[in-house]
Write a protein that binds this DNA or RNA. Structure first.
Lengths: 218, 218
DNA sequence: GAGCGTCTCCCCCGGCCGGGGGAGGCCCGT
DNA sequence: ACGGGCCTCCCCCGGCCGGGGGAGACGCTC
């Protein structure tokens, strides 16, 4: 059965765009739309979507408040994907802290959007949108949303170990030596880590590791 | 004229190894050796080497104290390259704080050793030996040696900008778009950054950026 | 015993990356 | 006016990386 998605955005154009992109996929079904945050909770109760693509800036109730409302009032809440532009980065981190599961850049290409939806639907986090770095310096100490997001990624012990070694700058071959396993094995673990973190390459994974507090600089 | 190097290590075997490796290079000349830290300052005054390859654990005066002594008492002091094994990482960061210019792992391959010597001789730092990560958590707040080391790397404005973008997870193509320049241009900047940081690839450069405080996690 | 997750290894393949070397234009300081 | 640093772009090339897909072995749980 397909992944069910609820679109929440005050701009019809954006909703139509997302719908067009997502409906083109056989395994994704858009089950509803909302134009403001206030309508989200009742719609979620009614439609029980697996994923909510949630805009940040909306009338009545913004994406952050709507995210909080959904997670606070709905049993088995859907995954929340925060839809954003570069411009409202400052709001995004609040949404993540409110419990959202990932980012989605409006300017992302269709394939990336589809990928993001599938990822969160599978319970994986989407730690790494290209703009994550721009959030730096805006978190208060102690409440880093990304940390929970990475924890949500549920890395296995081996994968965590590989991520640590990646974060110390080692190549796959070097990691293989260190762990005394084959290079192909390391590749498997690395691929798993990238998928779970929503990272495109090892560099993004390492950044996510730093941003989330998984590793810490001096 | 060749780069002049002073070897300081209490083990003759290590000195011989280093000498063999370095002397094989036409552009590098080993001008002297010392077996303990106490002999370093007078030898530096006498020989005026451009680079000192300094062991950490030595009799009489260890590498950290010797480094301090040289930098404090010699005009136009040489570049200090700390020679270390994995095992004495805990001492290395002190050496860096004392003003050393880079690391050198004893188990590094000859080509890497030669490379390290050339780099520091050219006034560039060697931020990224494979073990840098192991230093994490040992720095006191406020006195991060790596920060000074990265500052010593003297990145140009453009290179710093590229490093920042690399540290936000962008690919070369994406950086090119963002800066509105050609992909080849970005490659040039990236290569320059890697060289100046002593990083092997962009991941190591990003790690160095985090470790040095050049970028900061949430 | 039949799953399921984890860890291990394999193949093929396209692509981005990074090294090496070169080159032209610009500004700035000598 | 010449040199040097910086930014820009170019070519060739080998290699690591990451995706896709598959598979066997182990241990756990149901």
């Amino acid at each position: 059965m397909p992944v069910t998605v609820l679109l929440v955005d005050d701009e019809p154009l954006v909703r139509m765009g997302l719908r067009a992109v997502l409906e083109a996929q056989p395994d994704i079904e858009v089950v509803g739309e909302a134009a403001d945050g206030a309508a989200v909770v009742p719609l979620v109760r009614q439609l029980r979507p697996e994923v909510v693509a949630m805009d940040v800036r909306m009338p009545l109730l913004d994406g952050i408040e709507a995210t909080r409302a959904v997670l606070r009032t709905v049993d088995e809440p859907p995954k929340i994907l925060v839809v954003t532009t570069f411009e409202d980065d400052e709001y995004v981190y609040e949404a993540l802290r409110a419990g959202a599961d990932g980012f989605l850049l409006k300017r992302a290409r269709p394939a990336e959007i589809v990928h993001a939806v599938r990822l969160v639907a599978e319970g994986e986090s989407l730690l790494f949108p290209a703009s994550v770095r721009r959030l730096a310096g805006r978190y208060g100490a102690g409440d880093r949303p990304a940390r929970t997001a990475l924890e949500r990624a549920r890395l296995t012990e081996r994968e965590a170990e590989v991520l640590r070694l990646m974060s110390s700058g080692l190549s796959n071959a070097e990691i293989a030596d260190r762990l005394v396993v084959g290079a192909e094995t390391v590749k498997s673990h690395v691929s798993a880590v990238l998928a779970k973190l929503g990272a495109r390459d090892r560099t993004q994974a390492v950044i996510a590791a730093y941003e989330s507090g998984f590793v810490e600089p001096g």
